[in-house]
Amino acid sequence: MNNLIEIDSLTFKRGERTIYDNISLQIKEGQTTAVMGPSGIGKTTLLKLIGGQLSPTSGDIKFRGESIPNMKRSRLFNVRRQMSMLFQSGALFTDMTVFDNIAFPIREHTNLSEEFIRTVVLMKLQAVGLRGAADLMPSELSGGMARRAALARSIALDPELIMYDEPFAGQDPISMGVLVKLIKQLNNALKLTSVVVTHDVKEVMSIADYVYILAEKKIIGSGTPEEIRQSDSALVQQFLKGQADGPVPFHYPAKEITAEFLGA
């Protein structure tokens, strides 16, 4: 199987702070790859790097063997038509109906007739179960519906790669189940390559083909979900089991508690 995306010794710094320190990972075509890790370690940043919205400090990111950071802007825009991203907030355009939101990328990039666009949009909405909500405004949708609508928009142009940024965050169990099912189905039916960035271990382990766990600026574990479960790394186990204390300490670094209170 070919690698759709190859990240090669990537280092990324934001100001003085290092987010990633020399990481490498591959995303195989047609698979669902999960990237997990504690919050605040810049998982979204990774997606923005792949999408070319940020440039790495050093290292390279390749899409089908072509370096994304070195692309010209016009080429990058062309490549982006083959990728798609589901933002955590959904990022629906609040001044348009659900229908127009999903029609938006089609209208921007093609010259299809309105009649044809209507058919395509309704099919996409049918796929996420929201055909009946086509005329609603984004403010009238629940959180789960908004994310499904955004999902319909991100598959509007039939991309090859779809990146999910925390798709399960803040969802109730039912919409979580719906989203897990949708991601799996889309991946199978459309032969998509998916990257899911998340910290919801249980959900993502059920759909991922391959898993990377990021922590402390590095990749601390990778493998199939089964291999990850068997991992003997204390850090990986702490993350999978959700233990409060371990290699990732419960306490933010501080001076000794006796010194703090007794002034010793």
Partner: peptide
Amino acid sequence: SSLEMMAV
């Protein structure tokens, strides 16, 4: 951001 990712 989502506009940019839609190549708009």
